[in-house]
Each structure stands twice: as structure tokens, then as C-alpha cells.
Nucleic acid binder design. Structure first.
Lengths: 175, 175
DNA sequence: CAGTGAAAGTTGAGAGTTCAAGTATGGTGC
DNA sequence: GCACCATACTTGAACTCTCAACTTTCACTG
């Protein structure tokens, strides 16, 4: 996936780029394949059953777990690892569905809360089982306990590496 | 992410759904976070440097590795784990960029080849180093050899589970 | 308390994706 | 060689996401 054996071009950082070994390539391809297939699978399942993509479902879940079923937009975006812009659009859509409602923040007039409505709780309640099933069948049922543990550790490391944890305010991607 | 502790609703298959344990939830969240962040990160890097999203880059790579730098649409779609529809749109875009060209298949008048052009090879040559760097920094540089091996195995299993390998003709997702 | 820069959130346009439907050709059986 | 269904690929509309503004409010400084 990453190869292109004879490529003397300049690396992002230094001279000769460190190409992936064959084994690394196998790993990387497996990763890309699996994540593509899985994201697709879950999106389809949820779109069909619950009428929303996987990310949106995740947003509802985060709201459901929050103190008064509400979260500031920025915080929700941070939790879900998406941009505020994306969240804005998403919440607009979820609002149309009646699953989320916006509320002004009293202490900060710029702020908005996204609040999970009763219908939102309901849609979650109805479709959580199907979603858990899908995740189980695709992932947990196929892995040994050791592999599950490994997966958690590995993904934790990767995730941490990509979010300068508590560094910048917004999503601290590049620059 | 999947929880909703007291939810007596009916599972997709049977009675009481098998909720994720706390530990499973941690693993699943780490997975979702990492994949979201990483896909985003790579998309950004490639969009900025090469002017295309990660998937498109992957398509060019697959073509570059194919026999005469060409692949039938369906086969390319299967390799890349995307639908033919998505591929159609993607190739249309890549064609506009001059990186891919379509060619009729002589033996099957319905068929089309996607062919990597010289400019396509070039764009790949120029941006492969930066992409490999990004992948290394985000993934391989952070994992021990054992973890890399584990990751490959785990992702292989998940990927295999989602594609009934050589079963149906098209992407054999659900139903 | 005006001036300034950062932060919170939204918006619109453009790009990408999905879904359902459509065209055209291939293969099979009669 | 014709009916019939599967296969190969495309298309357009609806939806989602990104990116770069833009608005409003906050916090700090002099």
C-alpha cells in the first residue's frame, strides 16, 4: 500500500524515506482493509435500522452518558474526535430528527449545549441491542481475550499519539 | 459507547442482548477513537500534500502494483473494499486529474479498465515518502514488534470476517 | 473601558459517499 | 437465436464531510 520501491524523492523529514517492510505492509493493509470494511458494515447496519450513520449514533451515546444528557458542543466534538464544524452539521441533522435539542449556555453566551431528547433516548434504547450484536459479531466474538486486550492497548497508543492530549484547545491536529 | 445498561428491548437475534463489559467497552472506544483520528489524519496529510483523500491514494497504489498498471473496475473495487459505485465516482475524479485513464476491455464489452497514467505514477512517486512517514509516525514507530504482529493478526481476522472471501461476486456485505 | 486576540459556534460551497435505479452486455437453456 | 437473468458499470439525487470564512462573545491589557 505504501510502497513504490524506487522513489528517490525527498522524504517529508529527511533524505531516504524509511519504506515499510513486507511484513509492515501486510499489517498496514490488514488494518486499512479491516477498518474500511468495519466502518462500512456498521454504517450500513445503523443506517438501515436506526436511520443514522455510526458517528451520529456515537454522538447520541456520548450525550446519554453525560450528566444531564447534555454536553457543550466543543466538548462533544472533542469526545467524538470530530471537528466542531462536522458536529454542527451533525447536530443540525439530529435536531431535525428530534433526537437532540440545542440549548443556550447561561454562563457563556457563545456556548451551546447539545441535549439528548426523550426521543433520542428512545431511539438509542431501541437500536443499541442490534448495534452491540453487530460489534460483537464483527470483532469480539472473533478474538481471544488476549487479542482483545492487545487491541485495546494498541489502539490506545495510536489514539494518544494523534491527539496531543490536553495540549491545544480545539482538535490539535497538525500545525 | 455501546452501553445503555437497562435496555430490555429485543436483541437483533434473541432475547437479552449481550452488552459489552466495561473492559470490552474500553477496547471498543479505543478502536473507534484511533480509527477516527488516524483516518482523519491521513486524509488531511494526503489532501494537503497530494490533493486527494487516502482512499484515492490507495487506488493509485493498487493500480501501480497491478500487471500493466491496470485493473478491471470490479476487481479494483474488490481490492480496495469499496463499492463499484464509489469507485466509479472516484475514478471519474482521478481521471479529471489525469492520474487515471479508462480503457475498454476487448474481451468483455461491458468491462472497463482503470489504467494508471504516467502522471499517476509520478504523483505517487512524489508523495509516497510523505505518506509512509505519516503512517510510521502514527502507527509503527509507536508499537513494539509484538504489537505490530498482533495488530496484523487481529485486523486480518476482522477483515476476513466481514468479507465472505470469494463467496459472492460483488461486495458481499449483509443479506 | 476601548482595543485586541482567542474561543465558541455556524455557515455555505465544494468534494465525496450512498442508495436506488438505469443501460448494456454476457451467459444459459430451450 | 430468443427469452431471461446475472454481471459490469454508470448515473443522479440526497446526504455527509471538509475547508475557509464569518459572527458573536469572552478575556486580557494598557
Amino acid at each position: 500500500m505504501e510502497c513504490m520501491n524506487t522513489a528517490p524523492a525527498s522524504s517529508a523529514a529527511a533524505g531516504e524515506p524509511r519504506w515499510l517492510t513486507d511484513e509492515e505492509q501486510r499489517v498496514w493493509r490488514a488494518y486499512v482493509d479491516a477498518t474500511t470494511l468495519l466502518e462500512d458494515h456498521l454504517d450500513r447496519q445503523l443506517q438501515r435500522d436506526a436511520g443514522m450513520p455510526h458517528v451520529y449514533y456515537g454522538l447520541l451515546v456520548k450525550l446519554a452518558e453525560a450528566p444531564r444528557r447534555r454536553l457543550r458542543m466543543t466538548e462533544l466534538a472533542k469526545d467524538a474526535k470530530i471537528t466542531r464544524s462536522r458536529l454542527s452539521h451533525a447536530v443540525a441533522r439530529l435536531e431535525k430528527n428530534g433526537w437532540v435539542r440545542r440549548e443556550d449556555c447561561p454562563s457563556d453566551k457563545r456556548g451551546q449545549f447539545a441535549v439528548l431528547t426523550d426521543e433520542g433516548v428512545d431511539v438509542l434504547r431501541r437500536h443499541a441491542p442490534g448495534h452491540v450484536d453487530a460489534v460483537r459479531q464483527a470483532v469480539f466474538d472473533r478474538l481471544t481475550p488476549e487479542q482483545q486486550k492487545s487491541l485495546g492497548e494498541i489502539m490506545g497508543i495510536v489514539a494518544e499519539g494523534l491527539q496531543p492530549s490536553e495540549a491545544g484547545a480545539d482538535l490539535p491536529w497538525l500545525r
